[in-house]
Amino acid sequence: MTTLGDAWAWLGDPAHWAGEDGIGHRLAQHLVLTVVCLLLSCLVALPVALVLGHLGKGGALAVNLSNAGRAVPTFAVLVLLLLTPVGRWEQGPTVVALVLFAVPPLLTNAYVGMRGVDRGVVQAARGMGMTGWQLLWRVEAPLALPLIMSGVRVAAVQLVATATLAALAGGGGLGRIITAGFNLASTPQVVAGAVLVAAFALVVEGLFEAAERLAPGRARRRGRAR
C-alpha cells in the first residue's frame, strides 16, 4: 500500500502539474489527440462504410480490416512510422497511427449496422419512390445509428490506448508520465501516470455509456460487432 500512497503523494505535488512535462499539459495533449483523431477517423471511415453498406459491397474488406487491425502491433506501427519521413513531424507518427487503429472498428461496425437494416423497410422505402441517397440518409443511416455509435465508442477507447502507447515512440500525452517514470526508475511516478491513464480511459467509456442511456430508445445499442 505504500506504493499507492507514494503515487497519491506524487499526484498531489503541485510541481508535477505545471510546465511542459506537467500533468496539466500532458492531459490536454491526450485529450486533443483523442478528440482530433476521433473526428479525423470518423471523417475517413464513416462515409466509406455508409456507401459500401448501402451498396452491399466490400463486406469482406470491412470485416477483414478489423481482424488485421488486431494482428498488427500498435507499438510496431508507431516505431515504423517514426523511422519513416512521417517521423520528422513531432506528432506525425502518433496521429497517423491513431487514425489507422481507429478506422477498423468504425468501418466494421458501421458496415454491419447498414447491412443489418431490415430489408423489408428498405424495400418499402424504395416502393415509396426514395432515391438511393434519400434511402441512405433517411432510412438506413438512422436505423444503423446504434451500431455506428458503438463503433465510435470502441474507436474512442482504442484511441486513448494508442495515444498512451505513443509515448514509447516519443509522442506526447499522458503516457509520457509513465515512460518518464520508467526512465527515472520511479515506481510512484509510473503508478501515478498509470492511474491517470486508466481514469481517463474509464471516463471516456463512461461518457459513451451515459450518452447511450440518455439517447432516445431507437438509438440504443442492441448488439456490438467488433
Partner: peptide, 9 residues
C-alpha cells in the same frame, strides 16, 4: 478498457 501501458505500469 485500461490501456496496455497503464495496465503493465
Amino acid at each position: 478498457t485500461i490501456p496496455s501501458l497503464a495496465m503493465f505500469s
